[in-house]
């Protein structure tokens, strides 16, 4: 099967499942599909840095959490009608998704710019570890940030609104998340073929040659890292809205690890990799969790088998092409 067909089939499956659930009156299945779509969006963000850029970030939970907190902070201020004070200015909170999304994207892009600018001075294992360190800083900060709930997190009574939609209806919220995921995947697809994507790919494989043709690998990778962080941040805002809740757990290093798991499970650098990884992960969590109390052990065994015997992830298996890393 060609990769294009795998991508289309995965998207069709994700779309068909909740429509079936709607007909069969199984609203929780729609919630599961929404969760898969949002995790796929977060992993798509990571995939730009990890797959296309070759930057193994173990700190992407920071952006996921920043997006979540952007939603939590704005919505909680709207909920209590207390304006948010930013030094000399006072801004009202909001429960409008488009505004929250913009703030989430801007905040996580800014954080990615700062973290990326410092972290990209290092490479390899050091890069993995310094991104982890930045993630941990945000985690500990949120844990003790009492104004916004600290370890307890922030709870929102009703889901935020989107013009023209009733987001409390599961299928409508799913449609919204699916549309955002589709846009992000289109963007990623275009990016891979655009000059920027090609240069980025070259910077991963042969930085010296990129430098020789007058491009800066550092700047290319920084731009990719910022874009990657912004998409993951947007996913964070949606994830917080799905749960109507945000907490430091979204910033934990296990969350960063989980995002990497999603990407590798599906296939690193593949367009459909994050989507298939997220779908499989949510399904495993759902079925294995019901089957045994020790389901984490089985999840571990499955992950191990995929790393050892199915290089290139599920997409690699389906397309019959092995690993896509240079």
């Amino acid at each position: 099967m060609s990769e294009r067909w795998v991508t289309l089939a995965a998207l069709a499956a994700l779309l068909a499942l909740p429509l079936w659930a709607l007909a069969a009156d199984e609203p929780f299945t729609i919630t599961l599909a929404t969760r898969a779509a949002i995790l796929a969006l977060a992993a798509t963000g990571l995939n730009i840095a990890l797959g296309t850029g070759g930057l193994v970030s173990l700190g992407h939970a920071a952006f996921f959490g920043i997006g979540g907190y952007a939603m939590g902070i704005l919505a909680s201020h709207a909920q209590t009608f207390a304006p948010l004070s930013l030094g000399p200015w006072e801004v009202p909170g909001t429960q409008s998704m488009p505004v929250i999304w913009l703030v989430a994207i801007a905040a996580s892009a800014l954080a990615a710019l700062a973290i990326g600018a410092l972290s990209l001075r290092t490479a390899g294992v050091y890069f993995i570890m310094i991104t982890l360190a930045f993630g941990q800083m945000f985690f500990y900060f949120a844990t003790s940030w009492r104004a916004y709930g600290g370890e307890d997190g922030l709870s929102i009574w009703v889901r935020n609104g989107f013009p023209g939609l009733n987001t409390l209806v599961p299928i409508q919220f799913f449609g919204l998340c699916f549309a955002v995921l589709l846009l992000a995947m289109l963007l990623h697809g275009r990016l891979i073929r655009a000059p920027f994507g090609l240069a980025l790919d070259a910077a991963r494989q042969a930085p010296a040659r990129v430098l020789a043709v007058g491009l800066s690998p550092y700047r290319l990778q920084l731009a990719a890292f910022v874009l990657s962080g912004a998409i993951t941040g947007l996913a964070g805002a949606l994830y917080a809205d799905l749960n109507r809740f945000v907490s430091p757990a979204m910033l934990s290093w296990q969350m960063s690890g989980e995002l990497i798991v999603l990407v590798i499970l599906g296939g690193v650098g593949r367009l459909a990799g994050p989507l298939i990884g997220a779908g499989l992960f949510v399904a495993l969590e759902h079925w294995l969790g019901g089957a045994t109390e020790y389901w984490h052990a089985w999840l571990g065994a499955i992950l191990l088998a995929i790393v050892l015997f199915a290089r290139g992830g599920i997409v690699g298996l389906l397309t019959g092409q092995g690993d896509r890393r240079g």
Binding site: V56, V268, Y294, L303, V307, R325
Partner: peptide, 29 residues
């Protein structure tokens, strides 16, 4: 496990050993 991973990149090693953490924790429990 590890023997098969020496030639792989760090990403595979991170994922495989992350999986081992899950297995070890649950088996101990």
């Amino acid at each position: 496990v590890m023997r098969r991973l020496y030639a792989r990149d760090h990403l595979d090693q991170v994922l495989a050993t992350f999986a081992l953490i899950l297995i070890f924790s649950e088996l101990t429990r």
